[in-house]
Amino acid sequence: GATAVSEWTEYKTADGKTYYYNNRTLESTFEKPQELK
């Protein structure tokens, strides 16, 4: 079976905060997504 690849990509803001962006739902969040835990 195919492994589900996380759609979340980790980015940093200009002031160094980490956030996560989902390229399928176009959602962004500062909290670590469930799929990455």
Rank of each mutant, 00 (worst) to 15 (best):
T3W: 08
E35D: 11
F30E: 07
E27Q: 11
E10M: 10
Y11T: 05
V5Y: 12
E31Y: 05
T9N: 07
T13Q: 04
Y19R: 04
E10I: 11
D15T: 06
N22F: 01
P33W: 02
A2K: 09
K17R: 15
D15Y: 05
A2I: 14
F30R: 04
N23W: 15
Y20W: 15
K12M: 10
E35N: 09
G16N: 04
T13W: 03
S28R: 12
A2L: 13
Y11P: 00
F30N: 06
A2R: 08
K32T: 08
D15V: 03
T9R: 10
W8Y: 02
P33V: 03
Y21P: 00
V5M: 13
T29Q: 07
T25W: 02
Y11Q: 09
L36S: 05
N23I: 11
K32R: 11
E10R: 04
A4S: 12
E7G: 07
W8G: 00
T29N: 03
F30P: 04
E31V: 12
L26R: 13
T13K: 03
E7H: 08
R24V: 14
T18N: 03
L36N: 07
K32L: 10
T29E: 02
A4I: 13
S6G: 12
W8P: 00
F30S: 08
Y11M: 15
A4N: 13
L26H: 15
V5G: 12
S28Q: 11
E7L: 07
A4M: 12
E31A: 07
T13D: 11
K37Q: 15
A2H: 12
S28P: 03
E27L: 07
K32A: 07
T25R: 01
W8R: 00
L26T: 09
K37H: 12
T3A: 14
T3Y: 05
L26I: 02
E10P: 04
L26E: 11
V5A: 14
A4Y: 05
K17D: 05
A14T: 09
S6A: 12
P33E: 01
L26F: 15
G16D: 03
S6M: 09
T13F: 03
R24L: 13
E27G: 03
T13P: 01
R24N: 08
K17E: 09
Q34H: 11
L26A: 13
Y11N: 04
S6F: 08
R24M: 11
Y11L: 15
L26M: 15
P33F: 02
A14H: 10
W8L: 00
E7P: 07
T3N: 14
P33T: 01
Y19M: 10
K37S: 14
T13G: 08
G1S: 14
E7Y: 08
K17N: 06
D15K: 04
K32V: 10
Q34S: 14
T29I: 05
P33S: 02
G16T: 00
L26V: 02
T25S: 04
Y11V: 10
E10G: 02
Q34M: 11
Y21M: 08
Y11H: 14
Y20H: 00
